[in-house]
Simulated assay, not measured.
Amino acid sequence: MSELLKTLNNVRTLRAQARECSLETLEEIFEKLSAIVEDRCKEAEEEREKSEERAHKKLEYLKMLAADGIEPAELLQGTASSKDTNKKQRVPRPPKYKYTDEKTGESKTWTGQGRTPAGIKEGLEQGKSLEDYQIK
């Protein structure tokens, strides 16, 4: 909370500050604060009405579903499967480089994307080039 809000929220401090202002200034401040409070009350009321309307609509939809013999969970199951079918699967990239893993002795491949494998990294540090590992 800012210092100004702390002052406005403390009656003793507010009275001390009010003694330094003229009555006209205090009335002007009161009018502005009243307008702000009214605006906030209207916003809170509108939000409450929207919330009540949404709850009423939900209840109506549940009644309609119950009348048709449909469970709400059935609707959610239907949307989950449709989302899965809409996803595009990325096609794996073909490998560009081939190297032998020193620890296991296996022959492995790398697409050239992501972190450089340790086997290729060690070879590069020893003076080899990426072209030495290229699959031809």
Rank of each mutant, 00 (worst) to 15 (best):
M1R: 09
E3L: 15
E3W: 06
T7I: 13
N10C: 09
R12S: 04
R12P: 02
T13W: 06
L14Y: 13
R15H: 06
A16P: 00
S22F: 04
S22K: 11
L23C: 05
E24P: 02
E24W: 05
E27M: 13
E28M: 15
E28P: 05
E31A: 09
K32R: 09
A35V: 08
I36F: 04
I36L: 07
V37Q: 07
V37L: 07
E38P: 00
D39L: 05
R40A: 10
C41H: 06
C41Q: 11
K42Q: 15
E43I: 12
E45K: 14
E45H: 08
E49D: 15
K50Q: 13
S51K: 15
E53M: 11
E53V: 08
K57Y: 14
K57D: 15
K57C: 14
K58N: 15
L59E: 13
E60A: 12
Y61A: 00
L65W: 00
D68W: 00
G69D: 00
G69T: 00
A73V: 02
A73H: 01
Q77M: 08
T79G: 04
A80T: 10
S81E: 14
S82V: 04
D84K: 10
N86E: 12
N86A: 12
N86S: 09
K87E: 09
K87A: 09
R90S: 06
R90Q: 10
V91R: 03
R93P: 01
P94Y: 13
P95T: 07
K96I: 10
T100K: 14
D101C: 12
T104K: 08
G105C: 06
E106K: 15
W110S: 03
W110L: 06
G112K: 00
Q113T: 09
Q113H: 12
G114C: 03
G114D: 03
A118P: 00
G119V: 01
G119S: 11
K136W: 01
